[in-house]
Design a protein around this nucleic acid. Structure first.
Lengths: 221, 221
DNA sequence: AGTTAATTCAACATAATCATTGAATGATGC
DNA sequence: GCATCATTCAATGATTATGTTGAATTAACT
């Protein structure tokens, strides 16, 4: 171990946190954990990765101070260490958004008709919900919905949207949301709904941001 | 390059940004560049690093979208890509600070009750061991114990202490040690033992200091 | 106590990152 | 053109990250 001055030690700590974020799988884990605490097994299933691999990533993230774990019966439940982790993720995302032509290209694929895809802001949606003017659908899988969702939201996982169109009132505007600003499910949901003649928009970000902003969340149990 | 869906491509971009921040030297470069544009040479002088090394770091950061460069006469001047880079740096730092603050808080919590925790000095413990008056337990994990420990010490990793209390004689004083003066495991061990009615103290420091003082160490093999 | 299931560990192969060296490039000024 | 200097490139070796496999732990249940 080499001799380090305090400043170098400090920067090594910072770098360790950044390294913890420096892997696409780990970022996906963070996106999942932003929805709520998860077991290793559940995360491995979500990402379609070997359990041991996920376990190692989670331990690396725990060493970096990004997540915490606690035993719950025969499971170990991981969760984000605190809100600053999501803030760091958002900051990273922001840098990528501004400077990556690749990101731009991918996003533009969904935003082709950008004018039509103008998102609803959190504040605007909160007002619309209070006045009962819109149908809010949560297009995430049912397990994520069960752990918390927007007040009054209807869970229609993207995979089932097509079959469940009849559950939706055709004369009300529909607002769709999913995991976060880069979650593509809400883009696809809005695209599908419009193709079927619905008036639909997406929320500018997802449940984690909504929760972080202190807006009301329905959490069963 | 493997086939990626749009989501994976996005997360790889985000991860690339985080990787660009995942090195202490690069973070120091960002700190310097936060003051204003700098040439490669100036940065190399500031960090006392080879110019070629700094040049490579800067190029890596440019690929990640963290900095931009422009030629200025015979110099190349680098600068931060935009304010979002500093925001990301601050977010990373915030995670690290909360993480280490947590550690600091825990340690301080143990040291606050110092009076109750009067430690045994090395010399005193050496005498107690010679006279066979105490049970010495090593609360480090088994692998560390295997590489050397105090003479006659019993390895009871902190995580197993609760279940192995029956291994300990209730009428003998117990002395616990671990890695060093800042290792909290022996604090926790003593706290637990006292709660269960044992007379217990901790050693003022750990095995490395014991060994450095020239006192006897049992090393298997 | 033994069994089962979830998680972690250990060991390995592969790949990426890092610092160092010396040579190559590109712009400047004589 | 030619020399000079800042920067970049290329090659090397050392270190660290990554994913895979199967075994070892751990806690709950019988």
């Amino acid at each position: 171990m080499s001799i380090r001055n305090p400043k170098q030690a400090l920067f090594e700590q910072f770098a360790a946190v950044a390294k913890g974020l420096g892997n696409p799988q780990r970022l996906e884990l963070i996106e999942q954990l932003a929805q709520g605490p998860r077991t290793v097994e559940a995360l491995a299933a979500k990402l379609s990765l070997p359990v041991a691999n996920v376990s190692q990533h989670l331990q690396a993230m725990r060493r970096a101070g990004l997540v915490t774990s606690e035993r719950d019966g025969k499971f170990v439940r991981y969760q984000l260490a605190d809100a600053s982790v999501l803030a760091a993720f958002a900051a990273i995302r922001s840098v990528a958004e501004r400077h990556s032509a690749e990101v731009e290209r991918v996003v533009r694929g969904y935003f082709d008709r950008r004018d039509d895809m103008e998102p609803v802001s959190r504040e605007e949606l909160n007002a619309l919900i209070s006045e009962g003017l819109v149908t809010v659908i949560d297009v995430r899988p049912a397990d994520e919905f069960a752990l918390g969702h927007l007040p009054g939201a209807l869970n229609v996982p993207l995979s089932q949207l097509e079959e469940r169109l009849s559950d939706l009132q055709p004369d009300r505007e529909i607002v769709a949301y999913c995991r976060g600003p880069w979650c593509v499910m809400s883009f696809e949901a809005v695209a599908l709904l419009r193709k079927r003649g619905f008036q639909a928009r997406r929320v500018e970000d997802g449940l984690p941001e909504w929760r972080a902003a202190g807006l009301p969340v329905e959490t069963p149990l």
